[in-house]
Design a protein around this nucleic acid. Structure first.
Lengths: 191, 191
DNA sequence: TTGACTAGAACGAACGTTCGTTTTAGTATC
DNA sequence: GATACTAAAACGAACGTTCGTTCTAGTCAA
C-alpha cells in the first residue's frame, strides 16, 4: 500500500501506459486507478506529459546508476557487457512494465522534448564499455556504434520479443545462447 | 499526381503517421493533406483504424513478395540473409516512412487485432532462411529464434538508429560492417 | 487563521464519425 | 442524339463524445 501520492500516480501511470498505451490512457483512468483526485495529480504534475516525463526521467536515472555500478565492479568489457545484458534480462522478467516503457515505447510521440532513448546517458555508458573494449583489444576495431548495435542489438530484440509474448521459454533461459552469439559478433579474433 | 483516392489517402496517412504519430494525426489532417473530403475517406475506409490496417497490410504484403523473391533467387542462407539486410537498408534509405511504419511503430497500440510484426509472415520467412541454413550446416545449431534475432537484430537496430537520425554516415555505408558482425555471430565454425 | 493539500464538478477544445446533399458517370428510353 | 433516371462517389457542416485542464469549495495540520 503506497501512501506517497506522486509515487502512486507514477506507478499507476506506468502500468496504464504500458498496457493501454499513452494516448489511450486518459487522466481519468489515472485518477481512478490510483485513487488520487484530479486536483492532486495536477498539484504534483504540470500536465499529462509531465507525468510521462517524470516517469521517463526516473527510469533513465535508475538505469544510469545501475550501469555505473556495473562499470565500477567489473574489469573487462566482456564482463561489463555481459552484466549489462543480464541486468536488462532480469528487469525485463521481474518488471516487464519498466522495460516496456523504457525500450518499447515511442517516447518521441508524446515526449518530443526528450532525446531518443538511444542518445540517452545509459546508452552512452553502454557504448563507452564497448569503446574501452576496443581500446584494450578485447573487441575488434570498428565504428563504435556498429559494434554496440551488434553486441546489444540481439539481446534487446530478444527482450522485445519477450515483452510481445512470443517466446516459449522464460527469457533468462536464452541468456547464455544470446550472449555467445553477441560476443562472438564483436570479439577480437585473438580472444 | 495521384488520382486514385484510396492511394492518395494511404500515402498521406503514411507520411502523417510516421512524422506525427498515429494518435497525433487527426482525420482532419488526413483530409487536408490529401485533399480528399471526409465523406470520401469514410466511403473507402471503415474508420481511422481501417486506414491504418490497410496501410499495414499492404506493407506486410509487399515485404512478403520481396522476401519470397529473394528466397527463389539465392541459393545459400548466407546470400539470402545478406540480400534481406541489403533490401531493408535500401528501403530504409529510399523510403524511410515505409520502414518507419513497418518496424518502428507500435502497431499494437492502435491495431490491437493485428499480430505483432515479429509474428508476421515476412518475419517468418526470414526465420525460415535461418532454419534452412542450420539444416545445411551453414549456421550453427541453436534455437532458431535466438539465431534469427542475433543475425537480424543488429541490422534492424541500425535501421532504427538511422530513422532516429543519430547516424553520422548514410546507412548503406555501414552495411558491410554490420553484415560482417551479424554473420560472424551465427555462422557455423567450419565456414 | 493561514497555507498546503484534496476533491470532483464544470469547461472549452478537439476529436472521430455521421448524414443529408450535390456531383458525376453510366444506362435505359424515346 | 436528347432526355430521364439511377447508383455510386464525393462533399463538408454538424453532432455527440471524450479529453486534458481549470476552478471553486472544502479539509486539515500547525
Amino acid at each position: 500500500m503506497q501512501t506517497h501520492i506522486p509515487n502512486k500516480v507514477l506507478t499507476t501511470a506506468l502500468n496504464l501506459f504500458t498496457t493501454k498505451g499513452y494516448f489511450s490512457t486518459s487522466m481519468r483512468d489515472i485518477t481512478a486507478d490510483s485513487a488520487v483526485s484530479t486536483g492532486s495529480v495536477y498539484h504534483y504534475f504540470k500536465d499529462k506529459e509531465g507525468v510521462a516525463t517524470a516517469l521517463y526521467r526516473s527510469m533513465i536515472e535508475r538505469m544510469r546508476v545501475a550501469l555505473l555500478h556495473i562499470v565500477s565492479t567489473h574489469d573487462t568489457s566482456h564482463d561489463q557487457c555481459h552484466a549489462v545484458i543480464s541486468l536488462l534480462f532480469k528487469i525485463a522478467e521481474e518488471e516487464p512494465e519498466v522495460m516496456s516503457f523504457m525500450l518499447y515505447t515511442k517516447h518521441r510521440e508524446f515526449l518530443p522534448a526528450e532525446p531518443p532513448v538511444c542518445s540517452s546517458e545509459p546508452f552512452e555508458i553502454m557504448r563507452s564499455m564497448v569503446q574501452s573494449g576496443m581500446d584494450k583489444g578485447e573487441i575488434e576495431q570498428r565504428d563504435v556504434l556498429v559494434a554496440s548495435t551488434c553486441l546489444y542489438g540481439g539481446a534487446i530484440k530478444m527482450i522485445t520479443s519477450h515483452l510481445d509474448g512470443i517466446l516459449d521459454q522464460p527469457l533468462s533461459s536464452y541468456l547464455d545462447d544470446i550472449w555467445a552469439c553477441s560476443w562472438r559478433a564483436v570479439a577480437s579474433s585473438k580472444s
